[in-house]
């Protein structure tokens, strides 16, 4: 049964063509000399140099990176805490409310999250800007981090942690020197997920951003709404390149880590 029949080959080819051709066209036409995105007029990199000279885009990129970095770090810390509480915390008062508050943001439409946070910021008189976007992004991405980390936490043996405590570690020491190294891959992928979600968010940021804090997606959206633009193609190409590079390297690193772990385990087995 495990064989490449013609049906499987065709469905995979068509499926991946559907997924990748639009992005390929986008990339190819970012090197187009013409201002008309859909008409090829020779090779040129002028849209890239224009992009790098466009201060509005550069500013927006900085705001986006700053928001993404801070919010994903905060979300990783809070999300890991949540995962630890949910998996190891046992019973506590208000646990069911807590767990529904973790899962609700995952299914909440972005328009509602954005609207509700904006109404909160206005009612407490907080000026909208970079800080409010960070608060908003931390809130929804910490829930994603907690899902990623809890699945890893739930799958490892509690007795290792208990052994560390029996041997004289405090709960925090046991977490830092035993639990954290084991769940580290999940924490890192949680951080990456939070960072990507923040970089990608248009809707929530549009609600909670102020006039001086335009993020890249807001800038892209307002330019794209007016029609196609070769500068946006160039920007998209850069973003796709960064993401592809990131995903490829992280998958290679994790593959190597798994191999090394296997080798070490075999070594330990032989020695033991």
């Amino acid at each position: 049964m495990k064989r490449f029949t013609w049906f499987n080959t065709i469905s995979l080819t068509l499926g991946f063509a559907f997924l990748y051709i639009p992005m390929l066209i986008l990339i190819i036409y970012s090197f187009n000399a013409s201002k008309l995105v859909t008409v090829w007029a020779g090779f040129s990199t002028q849209w890239y140099s224009r992009l790098f000279n466009n201060e509005a885009f550069i500013d927006a990129a900085w705001v986006t990176l700053k928001v993404g970095f801070i919010s994903s770090c905060a979300a990783t810390i809070l999300g890991t805490m949540i995962a630890y509480i949910m998996v190891r915390g046992g019973r506590f008062y208000g646990r069911s409310l807590f767990s529904s508050m973790i899962y609700a943001p995952l299914v909440m439409p972005e328009v509602i999250t954005g609207l509700s946070l904006l109404l909160l910021f206005i009612s407490i008189g907080l000026d909208r800007g970079v800080f409010t976007i960070i608060l908003a992004h931390t809130t929804f991405s910490m829930c994603y981090v907690s899902v990623v980390v809890s699945s890893r936490l739930a799958s490892f043996d509690v007795s290792i942690e208990e052994a560390a405590i029996d041997l004289g570690c405090t709960a925090f020491d046991a977490f830092r020197s035993v639990t954290l190294p084991i769940i580290a891959p999940a924490v890192i992928s949680g951080w990456l997920l939070a960072f990507t979600l923040s970089l990608d968010d248009l809707v929530i940021a549009s609600f909670v951003s102020g006039p001086a804090s335009t993020t890249l997606p807001i800038k892209i959206y307002s330019s794209v709404r007016l029609g196609l633009s070769p500068e946006i193609n160039a920007l998209s190409t850069l973003m796709i390149a960064v993401v592809t590079f990131g995903v490829l390297t992280s998958s290679i690193i994790s593959k190597r880590a798994i191999k090394r772990q296997k080798r070490e385990e075999e070594q330990a087995f032989k020695n033991g």
């Binding site: 991946f16 997924l19 990748y20 639009p22 992005m23 066209i25 986008l26 036409y29 008309l36 995105v37 859909t38 008409v39 990507t196 970089l199 990608d200 248009l202 997606p217 892209i220 959206y221 794209v224 029609g227 196609l228 946006i232 193609n233 998209s236 973003m239 796709i240 993401v243 592809t244 990131g246 995903v247 998958s251």
Partner: peptide
């Protein structure tokens, strides 16, 4: 990985790529 990769790329960019494909010209 090929299925997951588009998920990491910006949602907005993936929608934008179809504007160039589906427009009148």
């Amino acid at each position: 990985m090929l299925v997951i990769l588009p998920f990491w790329t910006s949602f907005l960019i993936r929608i934008y790529s179809w504007m160039g494909i589906l427009s009148q010209e």
